[in-house]
Amino acid sequence: MTAENFDRITMFGADWCRDCIRSKALLERLGVEYDYIDLERVEDGADRAKAISGRTQIPVVVFPDGDHFVEPTDAQLRDKLEGIAA
Results as ranks from 00 to 15, higher is better:
P59I: 06
E28S: 14
R78L: 10
T10I: 12
G66P: 10
L81H: 11
R78V: 08
R22T: 15
F69E: 15
P64S: 03
C20K: 08
E4T: 14
V61D: 12
A46W: 05
P72L: 03
R22D: 11
E43C: 03
G66R: 03
E28L: 09
D35I: 00
R55I: 02
G66F: 03
W16A: 12
M11K: 13
D67V: 04
Y36E: 06
A25P: 02
G66T: 00
A85T: 07
R8M: 02
Q76T: 05
A51K: 06
E43R: 15
T10F: 00
I9T: 09
D38P: 09
S53E: 11
K24R: 14
C17M: 09
G83T: 02
D35P: 07
V61I: 15
A3L: 11
D44E: 14
P59Y: 03
P72N: 12
Q76L: 07
D38Q: 01
A14G: 13
R41S: 14
D47W: 05
V42Q: 06
F63M: 10
L39D: 09
C20V: 14
V60T: 06
A3Y: 10
K50Y: 00
L26S: 08
D74T: 14
D67L: 12
G45Y: 04
L27D: 07
G45W: 10
K80H: 13
T56F: 09
C17W: 02
R55M: 09
D19M: 06
D7L: 05
R22G: 11
L39P: 11
W16S: 09
D44M: 05
V62Q: 10
V70D: 15
D7R: 07
D47E: 15
K24E: 07
T56S: 12
D38Y: 01
K50D: 02
P59L: 00
R78P: 00
T10S: 08
V42S: 05
E82P: 05
Q57C: 01
Q57I: 07
T2L: 08
D65N: 10
D15C: 00
G83N: 11
T73F: 09
R48F: 08
G13E: 00
E28V: 04
Y36T: 09
L39I: 15
A3N: 14
V70W: 04
D65R: 01
S53C: 10
P59S: 13
V60M: 00
D74R: 15
P64C: 02
